[in-house]
Simulated scan of single mutants.
Amino acid sequence: MSNNNNLNIRYNKSGYRQYQANDGGWEYTHRTVAEKKIGRPIEPNEHVHHINKNKVDNRPSNLVVIKDNIHREVHRSDYNEKNSCFNCGRTSHWAQDCYASYDIDGNRL
């Protein structure tokens, strides 16, 4: 992904930005950016969450890779990103202050 002028870019029906990979397939920009940020592929039980809820804001600082169950929790109707932990899913603290050993469903972190 060198020069945006050489990339075929589209937005899917859900509003996520995609680019055409060298093999001709379409890749999600936010997933590629997140994988580079964490230095590994995203696992099947993980999602990339846009912290500010803007699907086209793919800056590394706006993306966090979180487990499926935590992702569901942060998208609850009363979710507030200012008081939710992306590590464990609780709303009593931020991720940087998290010392939990288990997530909200009792799964070991």
Rank of each mutant, 00 (worst) to 15 (best):
M1H: 05
M1T: 02
S2G: 15
S2K: 14
N3R: 08
N3L: 08
N3A: 04
N6P: 01
L7G: 06
N8R: 14
I9N: 08
I9S: 10
R10P: 09
R10H: 15
Y11V: 15
Y11C: 13
N12P: 08
N12M: 10
S14H: 13
S14K: 14
G15P: 07
Y16R: 13
Y16W: 12
Y16M: 12
Q18V: 11
Q18S: 08
Y19E: 10
A21D: 14
A21F: 03
A21P: 00
D23L: 03
D23N: 15
W26D: 01
E27D: 02
Y28H: 12
Y28V: 05
T29H: 11
T29Q: 09
H30M: 06
R31H: 06
T32H: 08
E35H: 01
K36P: 01
K36W: 12
I38E: 03
I38V: 12
R40C: 04
P41L: 05
E43I: 05
H47G: 03
H47N: 15
V48D: 00
H49G: 05
H50F: 06
H50C: 08
H50V: 04
I51T: 04
I51W: 01
N52W: 06
K53Y: 14
K53Q: 14
N54S: 10
N54G: 02
V56E: 14
P60Q: 04
P60I: 00
N62T: 04
V65F: 00
I66Y: 01
I66R: 00
D68Y: 07
D68R: 08
D68N: 15
N69M: 09
I70P: 00
I70G: 01
H71C: 09
H71A: 06
E73S: 13
S77K: 11
D78F: 03
Y79W: 12
N80L: 04
N80V: 05
E81D: 08
E81N: 13
K82T: 15
K82Y: 14
N83M: 07
S84T: 04
F86I: 00
F86H: 02
G89K: 02
S92L: 04
S92G: 12
S92A: 07
A95D: 00
Q96I: 06
C98H: 02
S101Y: 09
S101L: 11
Y102E: 14
Y102M: 14
D103F: 06
D103W: 07
D103Q: 11
D105G: 07
D105M: 10
D105Q: 10
D105A: 09
G106D: 11
N107T: 07
R108V: 06
L109E: 10
